[in-house]
Amino acid sequence: MIRFQQVTKIYESANKTVKAVNNITFQVEEGQICVFLGPSGCGKTTLLRMVNRLIPITSGTIEVNGKEIHSLDPIALRRSIGYVIQQTGLFPNMTIEENICVVPNLLGWDRVKMKKRYNELMEMMGLNPDEYRKRYPWELSGGQQQRIGVARALAADPPVMLMDEPFGALDPIIRERIQNEFLRIQKDVKKTILFVSHDLDEAIKLGDTIALFRSGELMQHGTPDEILSQPKNEFVAEFVGSERALKRLSLFTMRDLVSRLNPADRKSAGKRDLRHTVHMDTNLRTALSVLLSSPTGEAAVVDDNGQISGVVSIADFERLTGIHPSERTSAVQ
């Protein structure tokens, strides 16, 4: 768990003082991803970098797993926190194996243990350990480098990870794939993660919670659904934009919708035109797009066994009003 209490950062220069981070209090539960979101200069990166003491705090306290960070040695603190930066920050003078084993090496692990950990991590990332062991970062694609960057942060199995726009420099297709892999890995490792992003879609997709900042102040901290459906103020509403209802749909899957339909309303497949189909695990934003492209406004729902289990129409979407994310029956992949 990470707890911020009245955290403030003031930069003083000759003629003015700037409050980069102003009196921020909130907490991130263990095993959750909290995305720091906001326009550039809103203080999100400053706040992140205060957690591993790259930036000194002006006032307030930050606790990581119950320990106030200033009671710890900064070197030991940083070694116990995974750190991923934009453009990966891989060291070009080191091979992939050396890069991944940087922190284990600093911690003085023995060779056998490091090698085992390297193999483990590479397999987790879906990369062949032996193929990359002796290669250098510049020989890898951007997406592969980013995977290595994440693997490196996980190397010493830290309970907490800080990620500063790690996927920002990737093209949209690769970014989406890596986001999916990242979520899959997180399901196993369950780290407490602070993740800086300026991309709302990324925040909705990855965040268990989103903390939205503006000029050093915390505007709202809540689940993606809360941010989208109950924006606290003008700024949040404007930031999430007029598409927020659509974006919100991507938080739910067809399974959520079907489970909410009255059995009486359920239409059987019958003799309908069933060229348009959606899978149970499709998110509702995509499903809506399928329905809109169907001439009848209807589509068949396919279950895990590939069987058609029913038919949905655009009208069924009204069932979703007022649905709360805690009532979700399934997680969006």
């Binding site: 603190l77 940083r78 070694r79 930066i85 920050g89 060291f91 940087v102």
Partner: peptide, 21 residues
Amino acid sequence: PEMRDAAIGMGMTAWERLTKV
């Protein structure tokens, strides 16, 4: 500077940062 940032952020001492990076 990103290399330096990564090195410090990962918990290298000044000496380690100098010799390893």
